[in-house]
């Protein structure tokens, strides 16, 4: 089967985002960027499906500026076969991202589409579900286990109360949660090999999708900062403070 994986370029998860002084957004100049961690898990899952002989081809797609090719190359080094960059410098909101991915889905006709559950910049947690709705596909969100069985895929999902397993017809959308797998690192030979793998450039216009953002960010602020409190000397002082000062127990 063919697997399509969507990967997003975002701020590195180790970097603390800083709000711009003019409150128009987060300052990303000279900030380390990387593949969204949930997308790394998505690529890893596709590669494992290929290693098991379940997947025959892995296509990776990203939407973003030209530099997002880096994240596609990383995916190719990890084992994906081919990349597509939908190049745009515009802000792409989730619904538009889903429409762009739908256009790629229709062209490529994959049996599975794997996305991260959440981008760590927008914290939206929507794109996979929207893609599934637009294409009429079922969805296995927040996946911690994926088992392809014939033309169905069983997905175990991390939910608030525990775990639930659903059986989905294919083609299906899967969004990854943290426990699905532990992504590998790309080896140097594979990084070299990835440079020769095909990477197609396209654009929203080429795909016939007009970006129509309906959300405007009016302002971005620092959250209320917490002041560090005091250090207590021992458990007795802690209990006394909680009882008599904070009055929470």
């Amino acid at each position: 089967m063919k697997v399509l994986v969507a990967v997003k370029r975002v701020i590195d998860y180790n970097v603390k985002a800083r709000v711009k002084p003019d409150n128009t957004g987060v300052d990303l100049t000279n900030v380390k960027m990387a593949m969204n961690p949930f997308c790394e898990i998505a690529v890893e899952e596709a590669v494992r499906l290929k290693e098991k002989g379940v997947a025959s081809e892995i296509v990776v797609v990203s939407i973003g500026p030209k530099v997002a090719q880096e994240q596609i190359r990383t995916s190719l080094a990890l084992g994906a076969d081919r990349g597509i960059l939908i190049e745009t410098d515009e802000e792409v909101q989730s619904l538009d991202a889903a429409k762009l991915l739908k256009a790629v889905f229709e062209k490529e006709q994959p049996n599975l589409v794997i996305l991260g559950k959440q981008s760590i910049d927008s914290d939206n947690n929507q794109t996979g579900q929207m893609l599934a709705a637009l294409t009429g596909m079922p969805q296995g969100t927040f996946a911690s286990e994926v088992a392809v069985e014939g033309d169905k895929v069983n997905v175990t999902r991390e939910i608030d109360g525990g775990l639930v397993t659903v059986a989905l017809n294919t083609p299906a959308v899967i969004t990854t949660d943290l426990r699905l797998n532990e992504p590998r690192y790309a080896s140097l030979p594979n990084i070299m090999k990835a440079k020769k793998k095909p990477l197609e450039l396209t654009s929203p216009a080429d795909l016939g999708v007009e970006l129509k953002p309906s959300l405007t960010t009016l302002k971005v602020e620092e959250p209320a900062t917490r002041q560090a409190g005091i250090k207590v000397a021992d458990v007795a002082e802690l209990v006394d403070k909680l009882k008599n000062e904070a009055k929470v127990i």
């Binding site: 960010t217 971005v220 959250p223």
Partner: peptide, 11 residues
């Protein structure tokens, strides 16, 4: 957004 390191007002 950004793990709570920024708060956006969205219209």
């Amino acid at each position: 957004i950004y793990a709570g390191n920024a708060i956006a007002t969205v219209q």
